[in-house]
C-alpha cells in the first residue's frame, strides 16, 4: 500500500493573514489542530504530498480552464499573494517531476487530466503547507480542481478522480500522502465574508466521515450555491479524498466556525489503518 496518509483541511487566507484579528482561543486551538495533523502526516513517513486544492485564479483562468490539473514541475513558487497580506513568506517548494509523471500517466487511464510544468501556489496550497510542511522539505505535487469558474466538474467526477489518484498511488513504490483542502459552507471575498452555516458543514462532514458516497454526491451546484455559498463548491476537494479512500471512515479532529477566518475551520484525517 503506497497511500500512507489522507486528510482534509481548510485553506482560507484569513487563517494566516488575519490571525491578529482573531480571538486567541480560536487561533490557538485551530493552529494546534493543524500541528497535530502535521505530526500525523510526518509519522506516516511520506515521500511526497499530493495537495488536492481549489485555486483562486493564480494559474488558471477562463481562457483555458482545466477541470483537473496536476503539477509536473521540479519546484513551485508561492504564495502568489502579497506575503504581508497573507502572512506567509514567498519561497520555492520542492516537487518531483518523475513521480508526477508516473502518477499522471496512471490517472490518465481513467480521467482526462491536464498537467502543468509551472505553478504558482496561492493561499489554497500555501496556507496548508505553512502548517503541514513548515520546513518545506517534503516534495509537493499540486492538483487543482476547478471550483471557481463554472461550468464545474460534477461531483461524481471528483469522486472518480479520487479513485484514479488512488490507483496511481498504489502503482508507485513511493509512500504518498494526500490532503484535500477547501472550505465547506462559506461566502469568501463578499460582504457576507464570515458567514458560515455550521449545520450544513456538520452534515457534510458527517457524510465525509462515513465515506457515504451516495450522500456525498447528492448535492447540486444550484442548491450548494444557495445553502453554502460559492465557497461551498470546494467540497469537490474533500470528495476527491473520499474517492481515494473509498470504504474507509474519517475523523474530524477539529471543526469550529471562525468568522474572521471566513470559514468553518476544519482538520480531518482518514483512518487508513482501520480497513
Amino acid at each position: 500500500m503506497s497511500l500512507v496518509f489522507a486528510g482534509v483541511c481548510s485553506h482560507a487566507p484569513g487563517i494566516t493573514g488575519r490571525k491578529h484579528m482573531a480571538d486567541p482561543d480560536d487561533a490557538d486551538t485551530f493552529y494546534a489542530a493543524f500541528d497535530d495533523m502535521r505530526q500525523a502526516l510526518e509519522a506516516s513517513r511520506p515521500d511526497a504530498l499530493v495537495v488536492i486544492a481549489a485555486e483562486h485564479f493564480a494559474n488558471f483562468f477562463m481562457n483555458n480552464m482545466p477541470a483537473y490539473c496536476m503539477g509536473m514541475a521540479e519546484d513551485y513558487q508561492g504564495p502568489i499573494e502579497d506575503p504581508d497580506w497573507l502572512g506567509i513568506q514567498r519561497r520555492t517548494i520542492p516537487g518531483n517531476v518523475d513521480l508526477s509523471r508516473r502518477l499522471i500517466e496512471t490517472i490518465m487511464q481513467d480521467v482526462d487530466l491536464a498537467y502543468a510544468e509551472e505553478w504558482k501556489f496561492d493561499h489554497g496550497i500555501s496556507v496548508p503547507l505553512n502548517f503541514l510542511t513548515p520546513r518545506y522539505d517534503l516534495p509537493v505535487i499540486p492538483v487543482n480542481i476547478n471550483c471557481q469558474g463554472p461550468p464545474l466538474t460534477p461531483l461524481h467526477r471528483a469522486w472518480a478522480f479520487g479513485q484514479a489518484l488512488r490507483k496511481a498511488c498504489d502503482a508507485v513504490p513511493e509512500r504518498i500522502a494526500i490532503v484535500g483542502t477547501g472550505g465547506i459552507s462559506h461566502w469568501p471575498a463578499t460582504p457576507d465574508s464570515g458567514k458560515i452555516d455550521e449545520a450544513w458543514d456538520r452534515d457534510f462532514l458527517d457524510r465525509w466521515c462515513k465515506n457515504d458516497k451516495q450522500r456525498l454526491l447528492d448535492y447540486s451546484d444550484e442548491q450548494t450555491y444557495l445553502d453554502a455559498g460559492q465557497g461551498g463548491f470546494e467540497i469537490r476537494t474533500f470528495i476527491a479524498v473520499s474517492g481515494a479512500t473509498e470504504g474507509l471512515s474519517g475523523k474530524v479532529h477539529y471543526y469550529r466556525p471562525i468568522p474572521i477566518f471566513a470559514v468553518g475551520c476544519t482538520v480531518g484525517i482518514v483512518e487508513l489503518e482501520a480497513a
Binding site: P150, W187, A189, T190, P191, D192, S193, G194, K195, Y225, G229, Q230, P259, I260, A262
Partner: peptide
C-alpha cells in the same frame, strides 16, 4: 457572476 451577496451580514 457568483460573488453576489445573500444578506451581507457576515462578520468582517
Amino acid at each position: 457572476g457568483l460573488y453576489a451577496t445573500t444578506d451581507g451580514k457576515g462578520a468582517v
